[in-house]
């Protein structure tokens, strides 16, 4: 059992605050993805959990044990690094065996574990090679096998796929998900790639400026972003925002149309995802003038002007549209979201 609890963890580097009091619980066997742009504090948080960084404040608990004062090796963790960190002077076998050798594990058990993990990652034929003779993807497999061989309670991954080319990344992604689900370890995975986060995570924690903005399952994060930042960060293309003017109790005027919204006195913005719009009869929905048309095969992405603001819609690729055309875009009513203009938080 390895539940991870982060209690009020903060980290400053001199005058710069990388993490502001983060609280988070990761359940046993959960696959948690820390998602955010570079500099948001996600890697710092991971390194604090690993023990490579000391928190300025707060506590880290793994499996009911407080670990923030312990060195990495006493935390029951293993880690996969962004640049693999596969030792160039050791063979693949010795790389995978590295952690086991440090524990002075009997040779027979080392053999058994290395072969099992190599098999799992499909690198049995590479065991005698050095990392200089491996491709990036193969090195990544070695790095994952080395972590799995430890049979850790928690496996930490710092952007493990970011140095691979697109096709390989896709392949490794699904493979990683399968292997980790089977190994039954708790996993924390840091990435800036929202697609990777969505596809791997049981739960995504979106981070921004040293805070966790939202922690929820991928579909929830996508459908009900807790803040404007999340709405703009997740989804490709991201959510559209339009200013809303209150015209009555729970009634708003958005781009010249009347819309029902939350009954609140704070100033709010209207938001809708590009794929939650349908083409409607003129006069029904938002009046848009097309500026750019990008056919993507399954869909066509159109960038329009709506009420002077840039606005994107994903429409059927059979609908023949051209720049300059005027469209009526009807939002699906239950997919409309509202965000506080000041705080950026979701308003319901």
């Amino acid at each position: 059992m390895a539940e991870i609890q982060i209690k009020g963890v903060a980290k400053s580097f001199g005058a710069f605050t990388a993490l502001h009091s983060v609280d988070m619980t990761i359940s046993d066997r959960e696959f948690m993805v820390l998602l955010g742009a570079s500099g948001c504090g996600k890697t710092t948080l991971l390194r604090i959990i690993a023990g490579l960084e000391t928190p300025t404040k707060g506590e880290v608990w793994i499996g009911g044990r407080r670990v923030d004062h312990l060195p990495p090796k006493e935390r029951g963790i293993a880690m996969v690094f962004q640049n693999y960190a596969v030792f160039p002077h050791l063979t693949v076998f010795e790389n995978i065996a590295f952690g086991l050798r440090m524990q002075k594990m009997p040779q027979a058990e080392v053999q058994r574990r290395v072969h099992r993990c190599a098999e799992l990652m499909h690198i049995e034929q590479l065991l005698k090679r050095y990392s200089g003779q491996l491709s990036g993807g193969q090195r990544q497999r070695v790095a994952v096998a080395r972590a799995l061989a430890m049979e850790p309670e928690v496996i930490l991954m710092d952007e493990p796929l970011s140095n691979l080319d697109a096709l390989l990344r896709l392949e490794m992604r699904s493979e990683l998900k399968g292997v980790l689900a089977e190994s039954k370890t708790t996993a924390i995975y840091v990435t800036h790639d929202q697609v990777e986060a969505m596809s791997l995570a049981d739960r995504i924690s979106v981070m921004n400026g040293g805070h966790i903005v939202q922690s929820a399952d991928p579909v929830e994060v996508y459908r009900n972003p807790a803040a404007r930042f999340v709405a703009g960060f997740i989804g490709n293309p991201p959510m559209n925002f339009l200013p809303a003017e209150k015209v009555g109790s729970g009634r708003y005027r958005v781009a010249g149309t009347d819309v029902a919204g939350p009954d609140t006195d704070t100033r709010i913005d209207y938001a809708i995802r590009p794929e939650d719009l349908t083409l409607a009869e003129p006069g029904q929905g938002l009046a848009a003038t097309i500026r750019v048309v990008e056919p993507l095969g399954a869909h066509t992405l159109v960038t329009c002007d709506v009420d002077g603001a840039s606005f994107r819609a994903v429409i059927d690729s059979d609908s023949r549209v051209n720049p300059g055309d005027r469209l009526s875009l009807a939002p699906m009513a239950d997919r409309v979201r509202w965000f506080d203009k000041e705080t950026g938080l979701s308003v319901q």
């Binding site: 990495p72 090796k73 030792f87």
Partner: peptide, 25 residues
């Protein structure tokens, strides 16, 4: 730096990190 950190995470002591990772590299 990642090599030293990897060695640390995988249980090498300060001396082992020097002897098994830094010196050979």
């Amino acid at each position: 730096r990642e090599y030293g950190e990897a060695a640390e995470v995988f249980g090498a002591t300060r001396w082992q990190r020097f002897y098994k990772v830094t010196l050979p590299m």
